[in-house]
């Protein structure tokens, strides 16, 4: 079971559907690994449902039901979305963003131990991507201009603040600096959601600005 979780108010926004896509994908991936947060989400959705049912009802147009039945008869049923190839390996929210193989992604290797791939930029400018750290590899000390969320998918890593395994939801604010190191025995694959390109603090920092255009 996962040890690091989203904050309760982040789960509240997820339940209400008000957080940006990057955050939603990160929380959705975490939920896949975390029964505890799934139970909390179910509570929040049940709470929403009660508030929903207790709203003052607003009458719909008289013709609304007939119109709907017509639509049901005429509109062909939408085909179910195709199951993403990698959905056996990754949670659905992430798998839908991935091609059939991770090798097909445009990987950049700003440094020996780290490869990064950009998947999409959401409506708020958050960049959703994958980070891959070589087993035992250390990433130089860096801080972030905006918030950074990482969710471990495979393997694990540690930094000054703790050690993390599959499903862990790690949030870093602009004031945090850290230098993560992947576990020795296994490569570490992470979902990464960042507000802005990372800025390095060390002398070799310029080598490792994975999301800055070269």
């Amino acid at each position: 079971m996962s040890q690091w979780h989203p904050q309760p108010d982040q789960l509240v926004e997820f339940a209400a559907g008000t957080c940006h896509t990057g955050m939603s994908v990160a929380i959705s991936v975490h939920l896949h690994y975390c029964p505890q947060c799934r139970a909390a989400l179910s509570e929040l959705e049940s709470t929403s449902a009660v508030l929903f049912e207790q709203q003052a009802a607003v009458p719909v147009k008289d013709s609304a039901f007939d119109q709907l039945m017509q639509r049901i008869q005429q509109e062909p049923a939408t085909k179910p979305e195709p199951t993403p190839v990698l959905s056996n390996r990754f949670p659905k929210a992430l798998a839908t963003l991935l091609p059939a193989s991770l090798d097909e992604l445009d990987w950049r290797q700003p440094m020996k131990n780290l490869r990064v791939s950009h998947l999409m930029t959401d409506e708020s400018g958050m960049i959703i991507g994958l980070h891959h750290m070589k087993a035992g590899g250390r990433v130089p000390n860096h801080y972030h201009r905006g918030e950074e969320i990482s969710v471990v998918l495979e393997g694990g890593f540690s930094d000054q603040l703790g050690s993390y395994g599959a499903g862990d939801f790690i949030m870093r604010t602009p004031s945090d600096t850290h230098s993560p190191r992947a576990d020795a025995h296994e490569d570490c694959l992470m979902l990464s959601v960042v507000a802005a390109p990372v800025k390095l603090t060390g002398a070799l920092g310029w080598l490792l600005n994975p999301f800055l255009k070269p």
Binding site: S24, H32, P35, E81, T96
Partner: peptide, 28 residues
Amino acid sequence: RADVSADAIWDLESDTELFGEIRQSRIQ
């Protein structure tokens, strides 16, 4: 342009826990 639908993120079928209904009714 959404690369990912709401149903993929808020996956309606993902929670396979049985008796979730009893818990949800109690919470409600």
